[in-house]
Design a protein around this nucleic acid. Sequence first.
DNA 1: ATATTGAATATTGGATCCAATATCCGATAC
DNA 2: GTATCGGATATTGGATCCAATATTCAATAT
Lengths: 222, 222
Amino acid sequence: MAKFQTVDIGRSASAASIIFAALRRAIVEGDLADGEPLRQDEIARSFNTSRIPVREALTMLEQQGLVKTERYKGAVVAGLSMAEATEIFDFRALVEAEVMRRSVPNMTTEVLDTARACLERFAAGSDPMQYGDLNREFHETLYRASALPYHLGVIENAMDRIDRYLRAQLVLSDGMDRARREHLVILDACAKGEAERAASLTAEHIRGARDSLAEHMGAGSR
Amino acid sequence: MAKFQTVDIGRSASAASIIFAALRRAIVEGDLADGEPLRQDEIARSFNTSRIPVREALTMLEQQGLVKTERYKGAVVAGLSMAEATEIFDFRALVEAEVMRRSVPNMTTEVLDTARACLERFAAGSDPMQYGDLNREFHETLYRASALPYHLGVIENAMDRIDRYLRAQLVLSDGMDRARREHLVILDACAKGEAERAASLTAEHIRGARDSLAEHMGAGSR
DNA sequence: ATATTGAATATTGGATCCAATATCCGATAC
DNA sequence: GTATCGGATATTGGATCCAATATTCAATAT
């Protein structure tokens, strides 16, 4: 049709979506502490907008479970109790194992190479704060082969809820080494086309993180 | 503490949440057709509010995947392609089976009685439009015993996305009879404490609905 | 000294207003 | 007659304003 690169401006960023993305990132990465209040006015000032797009961003965050709002009191970053975090890990183990099972038959060598590159960057880079991003990228690369967008969305949301805790735990223990090893084994199973093994390794990988978190965090927040 | 019944007014309904609930219901039950545009002005007039709470409700609906919004074009009811619907049924089969497995050990006779009562009302009532509500109530009653609130939330969202199609399919076939029979068998497994059987019956129940829908709807929308 | 009250301030939810974009429709060129 | 252009209207996104509620804190009573 058109002889030039086009961009869907219709879907391009509204002020609200920009603010949402920024706040989401800050919460997911743990830059905003659990329970910290999010003042509309303050956020509006820092983005140079009115409070309207801020409010829209906050309702989006609330729908995702990342903040809790009380009428006339405002939004605070939503923390997780240990029970809630554990439940989300179990959920991830269930869903991600199934997605992995259905991904393996579709994995091209390109997918495997991309995932492998992830692990290499992971091994090279020592910045522990970057681990979270690479971890997500590795898993998402493999899962995307499943062509199950709804599942991917649900997984992403679950990850958002626990990512901070995961990051916190990883720097405090041998979590990074262990993740590295497990990722290699998972990738190996994928490369060999062993879907069932890749699935159960994935489930174990996630349950291991769950247990490690439970150990290091004890009774936990809230 | 207080010697009288209290209500958490802080969480009580804002205009936005009332509008959200009404629109959600209309979409989930199929009163609003796929692709139908939702005009802010019109909705605001019918609730006697300004457009502000309407916009908030629409962003909530968008986060739930029930409407799609394009900048400066507004929101339309989000339909599902057959592939998308199928994927959500598969997701439900996976998650609901697991929740059922973990519910069974916790089921009190009270839970079982409540579920049984559901089925009886179901058998008695002939209103096919009420089937959807009773179906959800039956499943939710059983699942609640799992004490897995995150899982329940995710299941609820998945149900919201496909409920209309389920309802449409049920009135057009022997779906109601079949659902009745399958529900009885599931409840029987629960009553006998056979968690694994209840789980696999649940998965089959859902996959059956998926296939029935695929048959009756063919290539489907979008 | 501590608990309670009430005024002052801060903050949110909603209404109204304005700017940006989309949609519709008639005019015009071919 | 059909396709394209340009203005009129409709609709959304964001800014500003107002009302309702929460929070703070000083004054007072016990």
